[in-house]
């Protein structure tokens, strides 16, 4: 009998080989993918070294290539997006779990998922045609008005700006934040919630003092995942940010992110310029990969701990 099992196990080799082969092939593709970016970026890395990251001026075509402004704009647009999407997204997740009537719950949830299914170029078009004029005619004058045009609401009110890019991004990362935080909040033990309620806590107290603190780790994971998506979004940002690589003076300044610069300049970049763009791609890869890895650790820990 034992003999037979081993026999069948050995004759199962092709199956194991097939699986390993596929995994190996995919692993190799990833290696080639990473290698292609590193290899293309190498001349620029070699020539500009750390100035690629700290250099303030990005002169496409001729150099020098310093991505400080691009990095700043990338981080800034992501922070704006988070500032809008986190409160709205967390509230939506809580509402979806505890407040929406059972009958329409799945319908409401699928509406949020629908947001994720809209291609980014469509958000870009919407931002370009609808949000940009609204921003320049309504939002920017209003913000400048109530603050007296002080920083960070100073500068030209053109619509196209890091603010607009951040707003479009906030819509795009909303579904990620809602979906993941809903998952991690859903595993908060019912005992804890009911315990809170039985002690006479109101719903708001249970939400803010029991649910959110318990799901904290996972929620940070959800936020990090959303940030990862915002950092790398390309087309929608390229369509609304104004393609002007500069350090932001205010929320109204035009800018360019790492990803949007690759999209807009890659078509006519050659030699060193192409290499510098590949270096941007490499930075983008390192940043998003770290943020994503961090997010996975957090969400995994949250789910693993049962909370």
């Amino acid at each position: 009998m034992a003999e037979r099992i081993r026999l069948s196990a050995t004759s199962d080799r092709p199956y194991a080989l097939l699986l390993r082969g596929a995994a190996f092939f995919f692993g190799a593709v990833i290696v080639v993918f990473v290698w292609s970016v590193v290899k293309t970026a190498w001349p620029a890395l070699h020539q500009y070294t750390y100035h690629l990251v700290t250099g303030k001026s990005w002169i496409s075509g001729t150099g020098p290539y310093g991505a400080l402004a691009l990095l700043t704009d990338t981080v800034l647009t992501t922070l704006i997006a988070l500032a809008i999407a986190v409160p709205v997204g967390l509230s939506s997740a809580l509402a979806l779990l505890f407040l929406i009537p059972e009958r329409i719950k799945s319908f409401a949830a699928s509406l949020v998922e629908l947001l994720a299914a809209v291609p980014s170029v469509v958000y870009g078009l919407w931002g370009l045609v609808y949000l940009a004029p609204w921003l320049s005619h309504t939002v920017q004058p209003f913000l400048a008005g109530i603050t007296g045009g002080r920083w960070p609401f100073n500068g030209a009110q053109e619509g196209f700006s890091v603010l607009l890019a951040g707003m479009v991004l906030s819509v795009m990362i909303q579904p990620t934040i809602v979906a993941i935080s809903r998952d991690v909040i859903a595993v908060v033990p019912t005992d804890l919630i009911e315990g809170g309620l039985s002690l006479g806590a109101t719903r708001s107290q249970v939400f803010t003092r029991v649910v959110l603190p318990t799901a904290k780790t996972g929620i940070f994971g959800a936020i990090a995942l959303g940030a990862g998506r915002a950092l790398g979004e390309t087309i929608a940002v390229a369509m609304v940010i104004g393609s002007n690589p500069q350090l932001p003076h205010s929320l109204f300044t035009t800018g360019a992110t790492l990803a949007s610069t690759i999209a807009t300049e890659f078509g006519n970049a050659t030699g060193n310029a192409g290499s510098a763009l590949a270096a941007l791609a490499l930075m983008l890869m390192v940043i998003t990969a770290s943020v994503n890895a961090f997010a996975r650790v957090l969400t995994k820990r949250a789910r693993g701990a049962g909370v």
């Binding site: 950092l231 390309t234 791609a281 990969a289 943020v291 994503n292 997010a295």
Partner: peptide, 18 residues
């Protein structure tokens, strides 16, 4: 898992080179 979160533009760079 990390690949699922990488910006798609990077794959454009990859396909261009290869």
């Amino acid at each position: 898992e990390i690949m699922t979160g990488l910006p798609s533009i990077l794959l454009g760079v990859f396909a261009y080179e290869y």
